[in-house]
Nucleic acid binder design. Sequence first.
DNA 1: TTCACCTGTAATTTACATCTTACATGTGTT
DNA 2: AACACATGTAAGATGTAAATTACAGGTGAA
Lengths: 107, 107
Amino acid sequence: MAVGHPQRLRIIAELSSGRLHVSELARRLGISRPLLYMHLQRLEEAGMVTGELELSPEGKAMKFHELVPFRVHVTVDTVLDALRADEAAKAAEAADQEGPDDVQESK
Amino acid sequence: MAVGHPQRLRIIAELSSGRLHVSELARRLGISRPLLYMHLQRLEEAGMVTGELELSPEGKAMKFHELVPFRVHVTVDTVLDALRADEAAKAAEAADQEGPDDVQESK
DNA sequence: TTCACCTGTAATTTACATCTTACATGTGTT
DNA sequence: AACACATGTAAGATGTAAATTACAGGTGAA
C-alpha cells in the first residue's frame, strides 16, 4: 500500500545504496524536506524503512534512515485476509466508541 | 500499484467467489456503475482482472469480469527494476516527441 | 552575533484520484 | 409504447493525498 507512489520508489532507490539523513536525502531527490518527512512516515508505517535520530561526532542532531529488507507478497488470499483484518479493526473501533463492553484500558 | 484502494480490494473479494457482470457487481458493492468501471479498468491494466463482453441466452449484452490469479512480489530489487523500466519508457517517449537522436535543445 | 548546518511541525495551496449525475444506446418483456 | 434490464461515456463536483511556504527551535564554527 505504501509502494504506490513514484516519489516513494525513488526514496527506496536512493536508500538502497546506504543510509542517509533527511536533509541530504531531500537534496538528492530535489524535493522539500517536509514532503520527504511525509513519505518517510508512510514508509516507516509500512515497515520498509527505519529512522533513527543520532548525534553526529560534532554533536549535531541528524536523523538517519535506512531500508528494511522487505518482501511483500500479494495474492488473492492476502487481499482477502487484509480485508478481514480491516473489518475486524473497524468493528473493534466502533465498539470502542459505543461503550467498551468490558474493556480494561490498562496503561 | 493497483491494489492501493479499499474499493479495489472489495472488488477483488467479490470476484473471488466467481465471475459477475458489471451491473450486478455494482449492486453488490453498493457503488455507482461508472465508478466501478474506473476501478475495473485499473485492475485490468494491472492484469488482475479480465473482462469479456458476452451475449446472455436472452440476447442481452453483458460484460463479465473475473479474477486472474495474480502473485505480486515486491522487494527492493523489483522496485529498482520498476524504476529503471519507467525511466527507459520515459526516455523513449521523449525521443519520440522530440525527433530521434541528434536533438539540439535550443532555448 | 551571525552564518551554516540540522530536526521538526503548522498552515496552506495545488493537483489528482475518486465519485456522482446525467445522457446516449440497445434488447427483450408486458 | 412503456418498462426493466443491460453497456458505455462525458462532465462536473468532492475529497484527500501531495507538495510548498513559513515558522520555531538547536548546535558548532567564523
